[in-house]
Amino acid sequence: MSVHSQTVPMRTFWLFFLVLLFVHQDFWNWSDESLVGLGMPIGLFYHALFSLACSALGVWAVTRAWPTEWEKYAEEKSPPSTKSNQIRKGDSEQ
C-alpha cells in the first residue's frame, strides 16, 4: 500500500475544495448592501457562513481522508541512507 493510496477520499477532498473555491466568488451578491443576520451586510454574512463551510470541510478531511500512512511513516525509524538532510556542497552537484 502506498502512502499516496488514499486516492478516492483525496479526490473527493479536491472536489469539495474546488466547489468552495467557486462558491467564494459570490458575484451574485456584489452590489447588494442589505443588512441580514446579526445586522451584517449580506456580502459579509455570506462569507462568514463560507468560513463555517471551510471548517466543515476540515472536519470531513480529518475524519474521512486522514493520511494515516504518513503518520505511520513519520514514526518509523529512518534508515541511515535517507539522512540526506546533510547534503553538502559537492555531494550532489556533480
Partner: peptide, 28 residues
Amino acid sequence: ASISGLIHMAIFFLIGIRLWALGKRHGY
C-alpha cells in the same frame, strides 16, 4: 479572510502534515 480560511486549511492538511512527517522522519 474567508479565502484564507479555505486555502490555509487545505495547506495545513495537504502540505503541513506531509512536511511534518518528512521532517520528523529525516530530522529536518
